[in-house]
């Protein structure tokens, strides 16, 4: 394959990574923004999403109905689990920023080991509900002007397009939820001033539980979407957590548009650099980017400086 089509292919793979990453990082950013909790267990909610997708899809008989059942049920199950973790652990620590970091590290290991005990060390796939190969055209400049060609290997599957579309739809919905609804207004008021929110009748404890559940649900949704492409494994949360942190730091903590921009940036560069060089180099460059952002623009691309 020539360079141009090859680059396009890498960019498309990167777009799938970006879509999943944006979902996950949006959850992490939301939890940090509203609750000031750095949720180290966020990657495990993603892992649980993937692992439970395998379990639920199997119980529902596999195939397309199984996947749809997983897509609907798994984010809700994981969100409920996160709400329970919030009630049982985080609330008892009064959401203290430092102690919750240690507590979520504990939750990380509990979830990871439970997955190992219950699901085992194997990586298992879930069949995508549909998976048509869609060949993509490329424009070549021939002797007689531009010619449409169909390079061998330049293609994407319909499922990957679905992942990109689903992520975009969910993120748009999240944005509408935060900016256009009462519950979004309540969440933003809580984020801006927790104490004053209480003096206007906002039950901050319930808002926190909801936000923690929503954040975990987004991570789980990302996990369900990725499992037909990547397989479910009990250790898959680690890399996903690292990339989410990278995205959230570059984008600016608590900023949804910043998170989206950074997810596209990191997802595309990860896809392209992985294809042309190596996945390790992609991680090195992403981490270097974080270091540069922290030095030159600590609040991130779209974040606001601390007052």
């Amino acid at each position: 394959m020539e360079f141009g089509p090859h680059l396009m292919l890498a960019a498309l793979e990167g777009a799938v990574t970006a879509a999943v990453l944006a979902l996950m990082a949006a959850g992490l950013s939301l939890v940090f923004g509203v609750m000031r909790v750095v949720n180290v267990a966020h990657g495990e909610f993603y892992m649980l999403g993937a692992v439970l997708a395998f379990v639920v899809a199997g119980m529902a008989g596999g195939g397309a109905p199984g996947f749809v059942a997983a897509l609907v049920a798994v984010p809700l199950i994981v969100a409920a689990l996160a709400v329970a973790a919030d009630r049982a652990v985080l609330r008892r620590l009064s959401y203290d920023p430092e102690r919750t970091i240690v507590a979520t590290i504990g939750i990380l290991y509990i979830l990871q080991q439970l997955a190992l005990m219950g699901y085992g060390p194997d990586a298992r796939p879930v069949a995508p509900p549909f998976n048509h190969r869609i060949a993509l055209p490329w424009i070549d400049w021939g002797a007689g002007g531009p010619v449409l060609t169909w390079p061998w290997g330049l293609s994407i599957t319909s499922y990957k397009l679905f992942v990109i579309g689903a992520a975009a739809t969910v993120l748009a919905g999240l944005w509408l939820l935060m900016t256009r609804t009462r519950i979004g207004l309540v969440m933003r008021a809580t984020q801006l001033d927790r104490e004053t929110a209480q003096t206007f009748g906002i039950p901050v404890g319930r808002v926190y539980a909801l936000v923690f559940g929503l954040g975990a649900g987004l991570a789980a949704l990302a996990g369900v979407l990725i499992v037909p492409i990547q397989q479910a494994h009990y250790l898959m949360g680690g890399d996903a957590l690292l990339l989410s942190f990278i995205v959230v730091i570059i984008g600016g903590l608590g900023s949804l548009p910043g998170t989206l921009i950074a997810a596209v940036l990191i997802g595309l560069s990860d896809g392209i650099i992985s294809v042309f060089f190596s996945p390790t180099l992609a991680k090195i460059i992403a981490t270097l980017l974080v270091a540069l952002v922290l030095v030159f623009r600590p609040q991130g691309l779209m974040g606001k400086p601390a007052r």
Binding site: R182, R188, L192
Partner: peptide, 25 residues
């Protein structure tokens, strides 16, 4: 309650600040 230092929801609009007051009861 009108707290010391006003404690408005700084990034919300005037209308949204009032909306939160209206939502209380």
């Amino acid at each position: 309650y009108i707290p010391q230092g006003r404690r408005l929801f700084a990034e919300l609009t005037v209308a949204q600040n009032l909306e939160i007051g209206l939502m209380t009861r």
